Structure formats: structure tokens, C-alpha cells
Simulated scan of single mutants.
Amino acid sequence: MTWFDESRLDDEQALAIADLRLRALAESGSRVRRELGAARDAVAEAVARREGAGRPRAVVAAGPDSRLLRVVLEPTCPVPFVAWPSPGLPGWVGSLDLVVVLAPQGADPGAASAVAEAGRRGAQVVVASPAASLVGEHASGRDTTLLPAETTDPLALAVVMLTFLDQVQLGPATDAEAVAAALDEVAVACSPYRDLAVNPAKSLAIALADTSPVVWGGSALAARAARRVAEELRRAMGRSAIAGDAEHLLPVLEAARVRDVFADPFDASAGSGQRGAGEARPGLLVLDDGDDAPLLVEQRRRLVEVADARGVRVEIVSSEGEAEMARYASLLLQGRYVAEYLRVGLVED
């Protein structure tokens, strides 16, 4: 039987077991700064290659990590933008196009083939990847620029690529230091050295420990963060955790039986309120990045209203700041801290 021991969240020995993972989370902001510093000259070279060339016909983001770039660029890119996570490239890509590739691990054969194919077709190519890797080895050619990666952090490399696209007027303004500062703020607030009373990530881990999390983010970037956080929660809890649009999550909340206030809280079969003994009830986790678009406000109101009516716990993670990427990074890191504290607190008899 697996159960959650919240005392472990302030236990030095239990936290020491997770020290490497917690340390990696705390270093998120420094990785952004490190990657930007390592790639500064290469970014300047890539920008210089675009000078005088005018706008490309289209921007193609290739590789499995292209989806984050799509979320950021689709609303603002002044030319057609295509995210292509599959191997290779679309058949129409040629010398008039710009191909960008994120390959944090550098070992993906599909990304390597996209880089090589783009070079053969004469497209300008900008690749963020470790130099000593499969992808990095293919990033050679007259019109190819390698932004050398020193870590395997997808977010840090995405910030570097967005910095380049900002400088060539193909993407929104990107303040890498604002992203790093937002990550640092989360690392301080959620540090393992801060106890339960003042640590939002530990408190949220306790709140979600006996639930099957249902994660919702309203804006495009918050929805992306919700999917990533749900993945982290599934790995940590070994239990269902889903993310999606409001219309997909509402049926899950509506299917929860109304909680019986007289049920024995220590009897899983009586207190779960779900079909089947011991089944965890859903818990609604809202990722709020401050987007107050009327449609998103209405969707959030409906989700919370249904959750309250069914006796489903509602938790809200918020992020402040002017920069979209900084808010996204903050939400994502808070969720990753919560997942790590869930992993620390869950024990088996």
C-alpha cells in the first residue's frame, strides 16, 4: 500500500535522497544564463547571416521539441510558421526558408536528418544542440549555424533560440534575464530548506497527494505548462494525472460523486466518492498566468464551479510578470517542484 507521509517533506534524510533532483530544479535559472552566455557569439553570427536577406518565406521548427516554439511564435511570427516534430522536413522547404531545430539531447536521429536535409535544400539552418552529438555533427555547412548547448535543458535552449528569433524580427521580444529571474524566485520560494508552513510547493504536494490531478491552463503557454506538469505528476505518483482543454476536463469533474461529509476519511472505499474502492478522487489544479481574456475567465469559472459543486479540491498556481516566457517558466518549475515533493512523501508499506 502506498501512502503519503508529509513529515518527510521536512525530514533532512528524506530530502537528501532527492538532493540531486532538487538541486537540478534550483539551478534552472542559472542554466538559462549559462546557455545564453555560451551561445552569444553564435547567435550574433546567425543574426549577421540574416542581415540583408529580408524575411524568409516561412519559418519551420523541426524536431520533437518544436512544439514550445510553435506556442510562442504562431501568434506573432510575421511569416508562415510550421512546427514539424516528425523526422525530415515538409516537401516544400527550400532556399527561401529558415529552419530552426531544438535538440537538447542531440541524439535524435529525426532531428539530425532534418538538419542534414535542410542543408541539402539550401535553407538557412539554426540548430541549438550540443556540438559533440549526432545532431551537432550534422550542423555544418555554409548556411548552418550551431548554437552550442552546454546543458540538456529544453527550456534554456528554447530561450536561446527565441532570443535569436527576436533579434531577426521573427518572434516576440524575449528577455532571457527575466526568465532566469522568474526561475530563481521559484527556486527560493520552493526550496527544500523552507518548511511546510511557508513553502507553496510542499503545501500543494500535500493537497494533491490523495487525488488524481486534473490540470488546466487557460492561455496557450499555460496549457503547454499544464501538459508538462501533468506528465511530471504521473511519473511521481504512479497515478492518473491529465491535462487538457476545459471541455475535455469538465466531464471528469462532473463524473465525480458528491463527497459524503459523513464518510470515514480513513476508509478509502467509503471516502473516495468514486466508482471502485480506493480510487482517488480528482483534484483540480489551475495554472494561472494572468491571462484575463473573457473566454478563459469563463472557462475557469465553469471548471471551479463544477469542482466546488462536486466537492472536488481546487488548487491554484499563479505566476506574475510581464514576459510570457517568464510566466510559463515559473508555472512549469512550480509544478516540477510539486512533483518532486510528491515523490519524496509517497512511501510504501
Rank of each mutant, 00 (worst) to 15 (best):
P104K: 11
W84I: 04
F164Q: 06
L332M: 02
L287C: 10
A209E: 00
R40K: 09
D10L: 07
V32M: 05
S319C: 08
E348I: 12
A123R: 03
R120Q: 13
A42M: 02
A103M: 03
A18N: 00
D11L: 02
L98C: 09
Q274T: 11
G110H: 04
L162H: 04
V214N: 05
A187V: 08
A241F: 02
S240Y: 01
D65P: 06
W3P: 01
S30Q: 11
L147C: 00
V314Y: 06
G273A: 08
V168W: 02
S272A: 14
A225N: 04
P148Y: 06
V101Q: 09
A326D: 06
S240E: 08
V159I: 11
A277Q: 03
Y337E: 00
G122E: 11
V159W: 01
A246H: 00
V135A: 01
D65Q: 12
R302N: 14
G110W: 03
L134Q: 14
A61V: 09
A225L: 07
E185C: 12
S129W: 09
E247G: 14
G37Y: 04
V71H: 10
E320K: 13
M237P: 06
G273P: 01
R120F: 08
G276H: 04
V179M: 06
T145P: 00
G283P: 06
